[in-house]
């Protein structure tokens, strides 16, 4: 039976990995059709020359960086507060935000922003996207940091307090340094989900805040374009490095 199982596993892993592998291979194809005509970097050159892609990439980076800093800070503090004493409504809200379909979160935020704009003179833009990303990333950060806190020995903090540290000092000098691998791993996670998000972003982005996934979506919709293969391959490799780094940190 185990031979059949291994054989099956090969097939299942092929199903999970071949589509992206094939995409990557054909991003180096010199032809614009799906017949292999030789190795070439044409589509990478085209991707780098595309100013729209360039601007969208910069936008995505800025949004992901801002969302990462804000969500990691708020989420880490939140996990710490919940570790001291739980809060039913915060845990429930986080859990709900995690299981709510993306499309529902997207339209709820859109409705909220529109409603706000009636009273405040602001428009959809980078800030609305960043806030949206911070919101849906919070639960990820709390989950990762809370998992680390579960194995953290509270007596270390008590010792610091007994020795005259204030509570904040105990947090910053004793607890936080030991949470750092989990915090960095959470930050990487936020960066990935923020950089990658399409559904929510496309609903709350303004004209000046088009992100990379939005441009890729538009290109994919318009028809076949090997440039999308090239840029997709770069994203998969880039995110892949971050994912593996994050997994390593969490295992520590």
């Amino acid at each position: 039976m185990s031979r059949w199982l291994s054989l099956y596993a090969v097939g299942a892993y092929a199903f999970l990995h071949l589509p992206l592998a094939v995409l990557a291979v054909f991003s180096f194809n010199s032809s614009r059709f799906t017949t292999w005509e030789g190795f070439s970097l044409t589509w990478y050159r085209a991707a780098f020359a595309d100013t729209q892609l360039g601007e969208a990439t910069i936008n995505s980076f800025l949004i992901a960086l801002a969302a990462t800093v804000l969500a990691t800070a708020a989420g880490t503090l939140c996990a710490y507060g919940l570790w001291k004493r739980g809060s039913k409504w915060i845990t429930t809200s986080l859990y709900l935000s995690l299981v709510t379909p993306e499309i529902v979160i997207g339209i709820a935020l859109l409705a909220f922003y529109q409603w706000m704009f009636r009273y405040l003179r602001i428009q959809l833009g980078m800030h609305t996207v960043i806030l949206a990303h911070v919101m849906f990333s919070l639960a990820y950060v709390v989950t990762v940091v809370a998992a680390r806190l579960r194995t953290f020995d509270a007596s270390q903090e008590e010792a610091a307090l007994d020795l005259g540290a204030t509570e904040w000092q105990a947090f910053f000098h004793v607890t936080l340094p030991q949470l750092l691998p989990a915090v960095i791993s959470a930050a990487l996670l936020v960066f990935i989900v923020s950089f990658d998000d399409f559904v929510i972003t496309s609903l709350v982005a303004g004209v000046d805040s088009e992100t990379l996934p939005m441009v890729i979506y538009a290109m994919a919709r318009r028809g076949f374009n090997p440039t999308v293969n090239a840029i997709s391959t770069l994203i998969v490799v880039g995110l892949g490095v971050l994912i593996v780094a994050g997994e390593r940190l969490r295992e520590k």
Partner: peptide
């Protein structure tokens, strides 16, 4: 005190960007 301040940013964000939007919908 520390717990309250630690929970404040995330709590505020959840109210403003999740609970209120869901209530609006």
């Amino acid at each position: 005190r520390v717990r309250t301040w630690a929970l404040a940013p995330a709590g505020g964000l959840l109210i403003l960007l999740f609970l209120i939007p869901m209530a609006i919908v």
